[in-house]
Design a protein around this nucleic acid. Structure first.
Lengths: 120, 120
DNA sequence: GGGTCATATCGACGTGTGTCGATACGTCAA
DNA sequence: TTGACGTATCGACACACGTCGATATGACCC
């Protein structure tokens, strides 16, 4: 199952996060909700993808071209493309083609959702 | 390498998180810092462990006995013990023996650290 | 159309991870 | 000490994941 920010997926995940972060004394999170939340967190829980998110955040305009990533990351182009796909599928980055180049922008609401999951 | 909340490990990870969450325009996160942060996030990015954290949070006194977990999780006892070890090694839970039983408590500061990582 | 460049996909490989049965370790009560 | 019970570790298995070379796709320019 994908966690792409499709209309249905987004609302379902938001509801799962809401149930997950309910106040003390409520029922614990269900397995299905936990799996949806874990898919989002797994996308962030990788050193290379954390570096990519950091590079995008520190770049002017909060956007970066895919061609600028393999060198600072020290990884081959297919590997970088793979990680970018994971981040886009998770809804953490948005892809935009400009001619031959692919530019990526932060989707901050999605990061906020991941942060909300950890509210105890 | 472990990410147990030893004195050195805790301060090192806190510094990594600080560098990771620096303001816009600063240098992106390094590979070593990203790996330390990813180890913490990987511990949370699992449906079973998210369920365990939720059960502990919803339990009276924010503590739970290991003997009460296999049944609601639908998993064998060694599997539950494995997940508990991962959470303890990550510093997210603290283990305390009471006679034959093992009780686990939330370590909220550690969860706050994980949440801080995702601040964009 | 043909060539070039950036990006995406495919296939394969090694490694890491979740799971469980079997078993070892600790603690308590007779 | 022995037995019983809860917990931790071990060994094995299947599966997922990160990585990269080779190749396909797409866009631009001539």
């Amino acid at each position: 199952m994908s966690i792409a920010p499709s209309t249905d997926g987004r609302t379902l995940l938001s509801q799962a996060v809401e149930r997950c972060c309910a106040t003390e004394g409520s029922a614990p999170i269900s397995r299905e909700d936990a799996e949806a939340v874990a898919r989002l967190l797994k996308a962030v829980a990788d050193p290379v993808r954390l570096q990519i998110l950091g590079i995008v955040r520190c770049s002017p305009g909060q956007e970066v071209c895919a061609c600028d990533l393999p060198e600072p990351l020290g990884l081959a182009q297919p590997t970088v493309s793979h990680h970018l796909k994971v981040l886009v599928d998770a809804g953490l980055l948005t892809r935009e083609r400009r001619g031959q180049w692919a530019w990526f922008t932060l989707a901050p609401d999605r990061l906020a959702l991941a942060r909300q999951v950890l509210d105890a």
